[in-house]
Simulated scan of single mutants.
Amino acid sequence: MDEVDRSIVAVLEADGRISNAELAARVGLSPSPCLRRVRRLEETGVIRGYRAVLDPAAVGRGLRVFAGVRLVRHGRADVVAFERAVVRLPGVVQCHHVTGDYDYLLHVEVADLPAYEDFHANRLAGLPSVAAVTSYVTMKTLSAGSR
């Protein structure tokens, strides 16, 4: 990736719906070479997709929780079983395998606190090898561009 590619990626990261003509103007290219670069970035996996950023509350997921999960057993079969099960749980937005006090950090979005209580007690705690879960309820979210 050169500086032009980095500029393209930065602009698309901020606005994935920008027109190719506007993108080209912003990065100092004509539209055809800009489009070729974008397609190459997509084909090589630098750009992995485009998504709509939703308001979680508007779609019934007004409570965001980060859950630190410790496993009892760390054998390969136990880890694979946990990972396969956790990504299928409704409400799990992301699952990160991490270092530190926890084995996994989950980003969970549900309607409200009773919904999270149900998720925690009846879904997450029953997954293979789960020893403990520590939950952190989000009070406010700031983005890198927030001021």
Rank of each mutant, 00 (worst) to 15 (best):
G100N: 07
P114Y: 14
C95G: 02
G145V: 10
T141E: 14
E3W: 13
P56W: 02
E43S: 04
Y116E: 04
A125V: 02
V137T: 15
R48Q: 09
D5G: 13
F66P: 05
V9T: 12
R123T: 03
R123H: 13
H107I: 12
L41Y: 09
L142P: 05
A111M: 05
Q94M: 07
A25P: 14
V65Q: 00
V93I: 10
P31G: 03
A57I: 00
P33S: 06
V110T: 07
V46C: 05
I8N: 10
V86T: 00
L63Y: 01
H120T: 00
R64Y: 05
V98D: 02
E13W: 00
T141K: 15
A144K: 01
H74I: 06
K140C: 01
R84M: 04
R6T: 12
V80D: 09
V93T: 10
L113D: 03
H107A: 05
L142A: 13
T99H: 11
G49S: 00
R40G: 07
V46R: 07
A52N: 07
E43P: 00
D2G: 14
A121K: 14
P33K: 07
L89I: 15
L54C: 02
V110R: 14
V93K: 13
E13P: 08
H120D: 14
S146A: 15
R40S: 11
E3M: 10
S143T: 11
D112Y: 01
L41G: 09
R17T: 15
V53E: 06
V79D: 05
F119A: 12
A81G: 08
A67N: 11
G45K: 05
F82V: 13
A131I: 00
V98N: 04
R73I: 10
R147M: 11
S30G: 12
A77P: 02
L71Q: 11
G91C: 10
V110A: 13
L127Q: 02
L106P: 01
A125L: 15
R17C: 01
D112M: 09
D101W: 00
V86I: 03
